[in-house]
Amino acid sequence: MKMLFAETPAPKLNLTKKLLLLNWPFLLLVTAIALVGAGALYSVAGGALDPWASRHVVRFCFGLALLFAVAFSDIRWWLRGAYPLYLVALFLMLLVPLIGVESGGARRWLGYGEFSFQPSEMMKIALVLALARYYQWLPPEKIWRPDALVPPVLMIGLPLLLALAQPDLGTAMLFAVIGGGLLFLAGVSWFYFGAVIVGVVVALPHAWEKLHDYQRERVLTFIDPERDPLGSGYHILQSKIAIGSGGFAGKGFMQGTQAQLNFLPEKHTDFIFTMFAEEMGFIGAVALLALYLLTLVFITYMALRCRSTFARLVAAGMGLCLFTYVFINVAMVTGLVPVVGVPLPLVSYGGTSMLTMIVGLGFVLNAHVNRRVTFRREEAGTLW
C-alpha cells in the first residue's frame, strides 16, 4: 500500500537558519577528536605527515563535506529512503562472499582497482534508519506484541549472520548492540531481552564449536594472554606494557618506546589508543575519553529534543554506534574483552570507518536541525 507522509506545519528553513540551528559546539568536539587522531598518527609515523596523518586530515575534511550535506538535507528523504537504503546495503553484503576482496584471511571488502569499501559499514547506518522508520509508524500499544518484533529482529539478524560469515565478529557484535539498543530505546519489554540473554547462554557451547580457530584463540588469549606470549597473546601483552609504562603523565609526544620501536602491532589502527596512552599517560587517556563522553552527552541532548520518533531514534542509534566503537576498542586494548579488530572512531587510521562515523554524526545533526518536524501516516495499513 502506498505510504504518504505529511509534516506538522513548521516554518521553512533556508540555509542561513539551518546554519544557526546547527550545534556548533558539537562540531568542535568532533573536530578536536579528529585532530587528536591526526597528532597520534603523526607520532606513529615518527614525525612524518605521510603515510597516515595527512590522509587522515584529508579524509576528515571530505567527511565534513558529507556531514554538512547530510545535516542540511530534508529528513523526509531519509524517512522514505530508509528501507531502500537497507536493501541496497544488504545486497552489497550478499555480494561480499561472491566477489569480495580477501585480506588477512577474511573477505569483507568490495573493490575495483585501488578503490575498496566495506558494505558492513554502510549497513550500520542503514540499520539505524530502517529500525527508526519501523518504530516511527508502530503504534505504542503494539510494541510489546511478539509479532511486532519479527521485522526488526530480521533486520538485525540478516546483516549479523552475513558479518559472521565473512568472518567479522567485531562488526557482528556492533550490529547486535546497536540493534538491541534501539529496540530497548523504542520501548520493547525487558522480558524479551531476558529471553535473548538466556538463549545466548544456552547456545554458547554450540557457538564455541562453530567459531573459527583464530576466533577461539582470541578468546583463550583473552583469558590467559601469557599462554602464547610471542604468538596470539603478543598484541594484548604489548598493549598492556605500553599503557602501563605511560604512567600518570606519559612519556611525552613521540617518545613512546613500545610504539616508536615497533613493539606495538597495529599501532595506527586498532591499537592507537594504546600508543596515545603511552605517550600522554593516564591524563591524556582520560582527556580523550572525556571528549568522547561529552560528545555522547551532546548526542543524548539532541536526541531528547526531537519531536518525532524517527529523528529521536536516528540520533540515539548513531550515538549507540559511537559508544559501542569506543567501548569495544578501549576495552579490547586494555584486556577487558577479546581482540576483535574495532577501530577507535575518528582517531584510528581508516577510510571507510571514518567516513561512516562522520556521516552518522551528520544524521545526528540532521535530526537536531529538524527536531521540530513530526510526521503522520495518511493511510492505515502495512507497517512496511
Results as ranks from 00 to 15, higher is better:
Leu230Ser: 10
Ile197Lys: 06
Lys251Tyr: 08
Ala249Ile: 06
Pro205Asn: 11
Phe191Pro: 03
Ala172Gln: 12
Gly170Trp: 02
Gly181Cys: 12
Thr221Tyr: 12
Arg218Thr: 11
Leu211Gly: 07
His212Tyr: 08
Gln215Ser: 12
Ser189Lys: 15
Val196Glu: 11
Ala207Tyr: 08
Phe222Thr: 07
Arg218Gly: 04
Trp190Val: 14
Tyr234Ile: 10
Val198His: 08
Phe222Lys: 04
Glu226Ile: 06
Val201Asn: 15
Ala242Lys: 00
Asp213His: 06
Ala242Asp: 00
Ala249Thr: 05
Trp190Lys: 15
Gly252His: 00
Ser189Arg: 14
Ala203Gln: 06
Val202His: 07
Ala186Glu: 03
Val198Ser: 04
Gly199Asn: 09
Phe193Gln: 08
Gly252Glu: 00
Phe193Glu: 03
His235Gln: 08
Ile236Asn: 02
Gln215Pro: 08
Met173Val: 13
Arg218Asp: 04
Val219Glu: 02
Pro205His: 11
Ser245Gly: 00
His235Ile: 01
Val201Pro: 13
Ile197Tyr: 04
Ser245Lys: 03
Phe175Thr: 05
Gly244Met: 12
Leu185Asn: 03
Leu220Pro: 04
Val201Ser: 13
Ser245Gln: 03
His212Ala: 14
Leu211Cys: 04
Lys210Met: 15
Asp224Gly: 09
Val177Ser: 07
Ile243Tyr: 04
Gly246Lys: 05
Leu220Met: 13
Gly181Thr: 10
Leu174Trp: 02
Val201Gln: 10
Lys210Ile: 07
Val219Gln: 03
Leu169Met: 10
Leu185Asp: 02
Gly233Val: 06
Ser239Phe: 01
Leu211Ile: 05
Gly179Tyr: 06
Glu217Gly: 15
Lys210Ser: 13
Leu174Glu: 00
Gly244Asn: 10
Ser245Arg: 05
Gly181Ser: 11
Gly246Pro: 02
Glu209Thr: 15
Gln215Glu: 13
Ile236His: 01
His206Pro: 05
Ser232Asn: 05
Tyr192Trp: 13
Val196Phe: 15
Glu217Pro: 05
Val219Phe: 10
Tyr214Ile: 06
Leu230Trp: 09
Pro225Leu: 00
Phe184Cys: 14
Phe193Asn: 06
Gly233Met: 02
Leu185Glu: 01
Gly246Cys: 09
Pro205Val: 12
Met173Tyr: 08
Val198Phe: 14
Gln238His: 14
Leu237Glu: 02
Ser189Leu: 12
Ala172Pro: 15
Gly179Ile: 10
Asp224Gln: 10
Phe222Gly: 10
Arg227Glu: 13
